[in-house]
Simulated assay, not measured.
Amino acid sequence: MVAWLKVALPLAALGLLSTLFLLSRVIDPTQAIPFADTEVQDRLLNQRVSGPYYSGTTADGDQIAFVADSVVTPNGFAGASDADNVFVKIDLIGGGTVNVTSQAASIDVANDISDLIGNVVLKSSTGYIVTSELITARVSTLDIRSPGPVFADTPVGELVAGAMHLSTPVPSAPAQLVFTNGVKLIYLPKQVKE
Score class of each variant (00 low, 15 high):
residue 78 A to C: 00
residue 40 V to H: 02
residue 54 Y to F: 14
residue 72 V to P: 00
residue 91 D to A: 02
residue 100 V to F: 03
residue 58 T to D: 13
residue 91 D to H: 01
residue 99 N to E: 15
residue 27 I to N: 10
residue 29 P to A: 11
residue 90 I to C: 11
residue 68 A to I: 06
residue 121 V to A: 07
residue 27 I to V: 10
residue 22 L to N: 07
residue 45 L to M: 15
residue 37 D to Q: 09
residue 71 V to S: 05
residue 122 L to E: 04
residue 62 D to G: 05
residue 67 V to L: 06
residue 110 A to K: 10
residue 53 Y to M: 10
residue 66 F to E: 07
residue 36 A to C: 07
residue 89 K to A: 09
residue 21 F to L: 15
residue 114 S to K: 12
residue 124 S to P: 04
residue 35 F to P: 07
residue 97 T to W: 02
residue 32 A to F: 03
residue 38 T to A: 05
residue 88 V to Q: 01
residue 80 A to P: 01
residue 100 V to Y: 04
residue 80 A to D: 03
residue 81 S to Y: 08
residue 112 D to A: 09
residue 118 G to W: 00
residue 120 V to T: 14
residue 103 Q to E: 15
residue 54 Y to E: 06
residue 74 P to S: 12
residue 20 L to R: 14
residue 62 D to R: 04
residue 59 A to M: 08
residue 59 A to I: 12
residue 110 A to F: 12
residue 67 V to C: 01
residue 110 A to E: 12
residue 40 V to Q: 05
residue 117 I to W: 00
residue 55 S to I: 01
residue 39 E to F: 04
residue 115 D to K: 02
residue 77 F to R: 10
residue 95 G to I: 11
residue 116 L to Q: 04
residue 118 G to I: 06
residue 53 Y to H: 12
residue 120 V to P: 11
residue 42 D to A: 15
residue 56 G to K: 09
residue 58 T to A: 11
residue 127 G to T: 00
residue 58 T to L: 06
residue 24 S to L: 08
residue 41 Q to N: 11
residue 22 L to S: 10
